[in-house]
Each structure stands twice: as structure tokens, then as C-alpha cells.
């Protein structure tokens, strides 16, 4: 061009670098027959209790939990005290985990002989959804206490979930939760993923979820 200007086509997704690394993680773990399960949900929805709950049904599997929190090692201390291997990532203010953090965590773990690695993501329904971590399955944990309008307000995270779990159903008598409305909202954005109802604290309804999980390993 006479004015010395030139257009260069880029066509590169903003998440390209993350997604490429996530794909590498996925391939690497698949070759070792390790399943990576990304657990997402709000702060306080019971992700750690849920993991403790399902671990009782996974005695025949060697499992590890990668814990994502802004600060503290409260969850890893708790899991380790129960005999569940866990590894802490602190994001120091970051609102989500990304593939770089997962790769680094996987490289730091000496024993690679796991069947399932769970990732307990940072409690958040927005940013966590944008980052592929190389997971085999993505599980969204919700609760009856969050309100049945959540799929309408945060549709994107429901859209990408491979399974939606409604936790804390033991609290149903005490809260207003319109299950039909909630499920209708999920089906608008995600017509096929299974929806499970359970109470991790009371160990109610855990088995159907574990059966689904095991089928996908």
C-alpha cells in the first residue's frame, strides 16, 4: 500500500492459548486413562461436602482433588484429614482456574497413578465457565437455597454443564424452590444433560450421580 499500511488477518480467539493447553492436558490424561472432572458452583453450594460424599462411593478408584480457592488451605486440610488426596491452588484474588494452573498442578503431583482427578473450581458462576481446563466432564453443582431462577440469570454455565446437580434437597421444606421452573430454565439452554437431586450432607441421592460418573470414565 502506498501509505505504508497493511492489514494482517489474525482470526485468533482470545481463549486460544488456554484452549490449546487444555486440549494437551486432555490428550495427556486420556493416554493415562485418567478422568478429569471439573466441579463448578457458587461459594457455599457444598462442593467440598459433595466431593467427600461421592468419594465414599468411589472406594475402588484412586482419586485426587485439586482445590481452587482465592486463599487458604481449609479444604485441602479437611480432605487430607479424611484420607482424600488433595492439592491446593490459591489464585490470590483470581476468580477462576485456567489451564495453565491445572498443568502446573499436574506437574507438581508426583504420583500420577490416579483414576479420577476432581477439580473443585473457585466458587463463581461466571468466569469459571469461560475456561476449558481439559476436563473430561463438567459438573455444575447448584442448591435449592440459591433460588430456582438461576438458569435464567446465569444461562451460560448451565449450557456447558455435562451434568447439573441440585444439592441440599434436605432443605426443601424450608425454602421456596420451584423445581419445574428451575428445570425448564436448564432445558432451554441445555436440552440433554442429566439433572440429579441429592443431599451430600445427608447422603441422599448420591448413587445415581456416581453411577453416571462411573459410566463416563
Amino acid at each position: 500500500m502506498s501509505d505504508g499500511k497493511k492489514i494482517i488477518q489474525i482470526q485468533k480467539n482470545i481463549y486460544d492459548d488456554n484452549d490449546r493447553l487444555a486440549a494437551e492436558i486432555k490428550t495427556e490424561l486420556a493416554s493415562k486413562r485418567i478422568s478429569l472432572i471439573n466441579i463448578l458452583g457458587t461459594p457455599g453450594c457444598g462442593k467440598t461436602t459433595f466431593l467427600i460424599g461421592i468419594s465414599k462411593y468411589l472406594k475402588d478408584k484412586k482419586i485426587l482433588v485439586i482445590e481452587g480457592d482465592l486463599e487458604s488451605d481449609i479444604d485441602t486440610v479437611k480432605l487430607n484429614s479424611l484420607g482424600i488426596d488433595s492439592f491446593q491452588i490459591n489464585t490470590h484474588g483470581g476468580c477462576h482456574l485456567d489451564a495453565v494452573m491445572i498443568e502446573k498442578a499436574l506437574n507438581s503431583i508426583n504420583d500420577k497413578d490416579y483414576d479420577i482427578i476432581f477439580i473443585e473450581n473457585v466458587g463463581n458462576l461466571i468466569c469459571t465457565n469461560e475456561y476449558d481446563l481439559g476436563e473430561t466432564k463438567r459438573v455444575l453443582l447448584t442448591t435449592v437455597t440459591e433460588g430456582s431462577d438461576k438458569p435464567y440469570k446465569y444461562p451460560y454455565i448451565f449450557e456447558k454443564a455435562d451434568a447439573v446437580v441440585i444439592n441440599k434437597i434436605d432443605l426443601l421444606p424450608y425454602v421456596q424452590f420451584d423445581e419445574d421452573f428451575f428445570k425448564k430454565g436448564i432445558r432451554h439452554v441445555n436440552p440433554t444433560s442429566p439433572i440429579f437431586k441429592l443431599s451430600s450432607l445427608r447422603d441422599e441421592g448420591t448413587e445415581p450421580f456416581v453411577d453416571w460418573l462411573k459410566k463416563g470414565l
Binding site: 497493511k6 492489514i7 488477518q9 489474525i10 482470526q11 485468533k12 480467539n13
Partner: peptide
């Protein structure tokens, strides 16, 4: 969508 479509540059003379 979320990507950079293109960039316009000025070359060094």
C-alpha cells in the same frame, strides 16, 4: 465470538 479479526500495521520504511 471473541477474537481479533485483524490488525492494521505501518511498516518501517
Amino acid at each position: 465470538e471473541c477474537y481479533i479479526e485483524n490488525i492494521e500495521i505501518e511498516e518501517e520504511e
